[in-house]
Design a protein around this nucleic acid. Sequence first.
DNA 1: AAAATAATGTGTTTAAATTACACATTAAAT
DNA 2: ATTTAATGTGTAATTTAAACACATTATTTT
Lengths: 246, 246
Amino acid sequence: MANSNHTNHGTNIKTLSTIQTEVKSINRIALSVDCVIFGFDENKLKVLLIRSDLKKFQGKWSLLGDLVDPTEELDSAANRILKQRTGLDDVYLEQVKTFGCLDRHPAGRVVTVAYYSLINIQHHKLKILDNELHWHDVNDITELAFDHKQILDSSYEQLQRRVQEHPLAFSLLPKKFSLRELQNVYEAILDTKMDRRNFRKKFFAMDFLVDIDQMEQDVPHRPGKLYNFNYNKYEKKKKKWVGIDF
Amino acid sequence: MANSNHTNHGTNIKTLSTIQTEVKSINRIALSVDCVIFGFDENKLKVLLIRSDLKKFQGKWSLLGDLVDPTEELDSAANRILKQRTGLDDVYLEQVKTFGCLDRHPAGRVVTVAYYSLINIQHHKLKILDNELHWHDVNDITELAFDHKQILDSSYEQLQRRVQEHPLAFSLLPKKFSLRELQNVYEAILDTKMDRRNFRKKFFAMDFLVDIDQMEQDVPHRPGKLYNFNYNKYEKKKKKWVGIDF
DNA sequence: AAAATAATGTGTTTAAATTACACATTAAAT
DNA sequence: ATTTAATGTGTAATTTAAACACATTATTTT
């Protein structure tokens, strides 16, 4: 933003650049961050929700969010919420979109910046326990408090797009995973079935999987081999793609 | 956002749901919208910039933006800026990302929601004239006021991604266009050269171009045929794609 | 008026990527 | 020892993308 104040098309345009000291209090707006926390369990894509305790949304579930402090970075606010709710640091976090409908919050104008994050459910299973937090199947959610269903939908769509072009799926899995687990993640996120042979072929061709020479443990069937994802190699080789298709 | 106030991991979490009436003034933040206005001229991708009149950024160029009024929708603010600066309604507009670095604005904490828009330069050429607005080659920009270079880069990257999967390019062209012009747009945005025959084949195969049985006028060479893009047909047939590639 | 110019317009061949598809192997469970 | 249920692997067919050259048309130049 920020510019000169010209008269243009008969409209007097005053902008931030004319404000030399501070933005007037009357122009300020409450800002929040909402986190769509995705997990993967029982071959389903899950999202972590909390019961709303607002009267207006009694009994409804909502995303995890909080106001942004004026001295706090947006990403820091998102990370703070994740740490508070899951106990996890260093989770995959990506901004999705900002939602600012005038009537989206009963407390008045609250603009919210949506993030989604991908976590490994096993890593924090112990930390939910009590309270009103629960994992929900993404595909079973029909209604949420506020405009959170809309935020969830946008986030899920962005996840579906991004997971096809970036190595996100691994953030939902343990460091060691079998190809079957990996395929299950993709099938859950993209809501589709894939051919096992072609799936394996594709990933082996990419050459980012490291055979760590270990097998699955405690599975009720023939154990599969375990792999790591080599992020360093990916960072070096990742492709810039060009193609038109719609 | 919005939830209960639990004690969790030793941290007392108070959130919006505890605020029944209104968010405290002290928690509010100035919010702006910045528009990256893309155009296409002389076979180059252009962006509309204005000279900053902030002392701190004297002589520097900046994006077009303004504060969001607390009673104004985010999209409305973006449309208002576009209308003010270009005189255009109904332009293609897409939210990119929200930038909120603590020190991004000298006037204090100002969080800005970035949008990019695609307009046909010819349609409003008359309206810039005076004032400090100018079109700049996207690829020649090395520095901008505020964090606007970063905003431009993010917007340009998003445009490059989206233009490959959605029919955005047509928003930069007149309703009637030749295949050569269309290819020039893609080559400018993606910064690449394409084979003319394969390009035409691809678009004819998509079957969204309507031959309007007219030829280019006043071109200093053999005129090409003119086409429309059939948005209705596209909306009906657009594909949901599934594939993994990174 | 004729020749030169500079762009449009079109098909085929080759290579690469994706899809479809079936059977042997291994460890666990019975 | 047998059954079960998953892992693990290769090839052929199809589709998609890439490479590539020449005739055509309107304009411009001579």
